[in-house]
């Protein structure tokens, strides 16, 4: 192998590294750009009263072994659902998620996940996490628990129904 050849390949290597650094920088930039958007929301520990944006309906979500329970207030008063949740399209909702002990069980860590909405949030005992989202399509979607929480973890799932 000649030195000339080696130099050429050195150039190619440098070009590869530069190229992928550009891609990486672009990814990082995109990361910062998207997370700075107003409608972007990620699981955040609730510290004050300002955690719930104006015009957003709070839904208190409690995970216990092994089901989800959802409580919210609307025109007909306080409503509680277990496993399945019904909400309205184009309305902003804020989930306030925590974990409590079931009948004779422990309060353990759960993780609420709605894949089609891109919503994921831990339910941690003794801590309220919030996340805001606005469903923009109607239909039936799935709700899952994706943090292992014991025997019937796999049954800790339900359906999210978005109506017009």
């Amino acid at each position: 192998m000649s030195d000339d050849n080696h130099k050429k390949k050195m150039k190619a290597e440098a070009l590869w590294i530069a190229g992928f650094l550009v891609v990486l920088a672009f990814t990082a930039g995109l990361n910062f750009y998207i997370t700075s958007q107003k409608d972007f929301s990620i699981a955040t520990k609730m510290t004050g009263s300002n955690s719930i944006p104006n015009g957003s309906i709070p839904i208190v979500v409690t995970g216990y072994q092994w089901a989800w329970s959802y409580t919210y207030y609307n025109s007909t008063g306080k409503q509680t659902f277990v496993d399945n949740l019904n909400i309205t399209v184009n309305q902003s909702y804020t989930l306030v998620v925590t974990s409590i002990a079931g009948a004779q069980q422990f309060a353990v860590i759960h993780d609420l996940y709605i894949p089609q909405m891109g919503i994921q949030i831990y339910a941690v005992p003794g801590q309220n996490n919030t996340i805001t989202f606005t469903p923009d399509k109607t239909g039936t979607f799935v709700i899952e628990c994706v943090e292992y929480c014991g025997y019937e973890h796999y049954l800790m799932r339900g359906y999210l129904t978005v109506v017009a």
């Binding site: 992928f20 650094l21 990486l24 910062f32 990620i42 699981a43 801590q127």
Partner: peptide, 22 residues
């Protein structure tokens, strides 16, 4: 990242993880 860190810490760890690619 989904345990309630919030955006700031999330971005820190996210960017640090991107550095691992180098």
């Amino acid at each position: 990242m989904e345990s309630g860190f919030g955006i700031e810490w999330g971005l820190f760890f996210s960017t640090a993880s991107l550095f691992v690619v180098i």
